[in-house]
Structure formats: C-alpha cells, structure tokens
Amino acid sequence: MNVIFYIASIIAILATIMVITGRNAIHSLLFLIVSLLAIGVVFFTLGAPFMAALEVIIYAGAIMVLFVFVIMMLNLGKAYEKMEESWFSYKAWLGPGILCIILLGELIYVFTVTKGSGRQLTVISPQEVGMTLFGPYILGVELAAMLLMTGIIGAYHIGRRKQKEYHRLLQKEEEPA
C-alpha cells in the first residue's frame, strides 16, 4: 500500500510541475487531470475511498470540463504560445521559485524530524462520512448550498454578453478605436 502511495505522490508532483511550466493551455490541463487522478489514488491509499471517487468525478470530471469549455471558447492559437514563452521568462520565476524552495526545505526538515504515527490504517466508510456531514456539520452543508447558489447566479450574471453601452468616461476612448 505504501509503495502505491509513493508512486502516486511522485506522479502527482511531476504532473503538477508539468502544469506550471507548460506553454499550451490544453496540454497543461491534461497534466492537471493526471495530477488530480494521482491524488485520487493517494486518497484511496489513505483509507478514504469516497473522497477518491469524488476527486475523480467532481475535480477531474466536472471542474476540468469547465476549463476545457472555456479554453475552447477562447480559441487561443499558436500566437498565444509565442506570447506565453515571452511572458514566462527567466526573471519572472527565479525569485519566487527560490523563496518557495527555501520554504519547502524548512517543511521537509520539520516533517523528517518529527516521528510518524504508528497507528494502523483504518478505512473510513462513505456511511460514516455521510453521518458526520449531515450530523454536526449540517450548518456547513446549508452554507455550501448557498455558496453554490451564489456561484451559479454570479457566473450567469458575469458571463453574460452585454456591454453595448459604456460609461460616459469610457465612451471617448472606445469611439476612435
């Protein structure tokens, strides 16, 4: 079981590195899906089979389909790959990258110095998760429902194509163009 965990972790990390260094949006998206599937395997080895299923169905399924639709609607071509290369320059990532690697070193130090738990792995069934979700956390479920409702209304309102009339200050800029 632990071997599967390590292999899936390495796949997840490599796929994520490919995502953040990619040039083509669709290729990065495919690597992101691989990374999410690998994390689903990690969930399965951690004794959370329900979360593994949700990860595959909702994250790698529904949310990534939204990304694919938007990238298709934007219709970014070869010209954007060239622009991407000029944007993703050496100077842009060197500073933040080094600082984040220092933070990562500290985290590795913390996690290797402290001792791991000697407990046996127990599988938490979907039944138990459901009982907890609709028991003590029922208020959170209702809040999540309200959040999703506002998400739907907000996405509809923002994504609508309107904008025929501009503000009077913007109108002067738009006319000559």
Partner: peptide, 27 residues
C-alpha cells in the same frame, strides 16, 4: 499498513508550493 502521515502532509505542502509558484509567476 501504517498511515503515511508525514509523507502525506509533505506531498500536500509540495503541491501547495508548486501552485503558489505558478500563481506568482504566470501571467
């Protein structure tokens, strides 16, 4: 099997840092 707690948290930290680097550097 034993729970790989430290390794799991380390994986979460690495993925979070990769996402952070990407958020800061991409345009």
């Amino acid at each position: 099997t034993h729970i790989p707690t430290n390794e799991g948290l380390l994986l979460a930290a690495i993925l979070f840092l990769l996402g952070l680097i990407g958020t800061m550097t991409r345009r």
